[in-house]
Design a protein around this nucleic acid. Sequence first.
RNA 1: GUGGCUAUAGCUCAGCACGGUUAGAGCACCAGAUUGUGGAUCUGGGUGUCGUGGGUUCAAAUCCCACUAGCCACCCCA
Length: 422
Amino acid sequence: MPSIQPIKAARGVRDILPKDRAAWAVVERGAVRAARRYGYQDLLVPIIEPLELIERGVGGDTDVVRKEMYRLEPHSDSSARLALRPEATASVVRAYFEGGLNQAPQPARLFTLGPMFRHDKPQYLRYRQFYQFDVEVIGDGAAPFDAEVIEMSKGWLTDLGLARISLELNSIGDQACRPAYLEKLTAYYRPLKDQLHYDCQRRIESNPLRLLDCKEEQCQPFKSGAPKITDNLCEACAAHFEEVRRHLDAGGIEYRLNPYLVRGLDYYTRTVFEYQHTALGGAQNALGGGGRYDGLAAELGYPATPGVGFAAGLDRIVAMLAEEGEEVVPAPPARVLVLPATPEQNLAAAQVGRLCRSVVACAVDYTSRSLKAKMRSAAKTGVPIVAILGEDEAARQVVQLRDMHSGEQAETSWDRLPEAFA
RNA sequence: GUGGCUAUAGCUCAGCACGGUUAGAGCACCAGAUUGUGGAUCUGGGUGUCGUGGGUUCAAAUCCCACUAGCCACCCCA
């Protein structure tokens, strides 16, 4: 009779259920551990940000801004235009200035974990709400910081147990050398315009760097003849790139030079890098990446301040861990489960639960099922110990403690319960 | 934004090509198999808008149309 369609989760989002949460926790704890080991500090930044922060930060010609933004409807004409953040770097840079971190000893080493939002068409490992681990070093432009961010993120991934990942590395120059390079690049591509696909024809004028990482079949033949950015770096950028590589080599970090690696966000200068997983195909193989963004702060209206960062998608990393056979067995929710034989003993069972909780996680089965059914249910949850409480035990203030693995059972008085689990 | 696939029990699906008895299976869940004690086995327990709306027909889960939702792929990203 009351037949409405059950309300389902919004398109492109999902729940991480308790059985999967343990694997997520491993990945998150690993991220926190890796960052702290290098002296990075945790912070939280808002999920909603001024639209302009994102547009100016990420770049107006990126897909992220052009078609994937979650814009919030303004409450009134005078209220600020807001959007859900599609990435965290611009927010962290903003927080760095607004929170006065620019006045503390430099650079600031920061990290944060949280959800990001992009209105893509959902598919395998592509969600509209996904989770990122984000690391930033703001306030100094030295090359070793680039290498440190890479080393730290790589260490995180390998410590988790991921083996089938590759690291791609490139430098895309800066204000000094990139304009001249882009001239060369557009000069090369302009005569070929007719043979490029629609988006690339537009990119020649709007964002020529992105011609390099186009994956369209018809654009591929022209890439090898295109001038390479790494052959056109200014002296400072070339020296910077070389120093990054020296540090990576000294640290034993393997990487593959990829002169076509560009990244999808406009704010990068000099170093860019990306982690890919060999089990993932197409354009979805990116687990994470990052780079230097020495022009970002100024773009947001703050004093010019260099920075370098890294972000990775937790959804994909969790999935790739499972893909590589890393199993995370979730712990039973409680170590002790109290089983009143009948509802008559519920009050006594609650009291036993209180006593146990001074030392262990303890749940009580208040259902009206038979004791046999409660035992069956307890076995399935994997709880290692049950405390059985019948009329007789309740009267004498004792319980039968049963080890669910060995089947051994012994009587214990209530006042000795804490020491029984210590 | 473009394309493909799917929609039947809480979950995974069969049934649909040749429309026609009370629409099935497995899993999960609940109960029971002598007195208050588990994972095995056995037994019992399901009226589910057959995604929604319309059409064809004596008759539609089954054929036709529209819509909606989900999944997968392309583009791009994480």
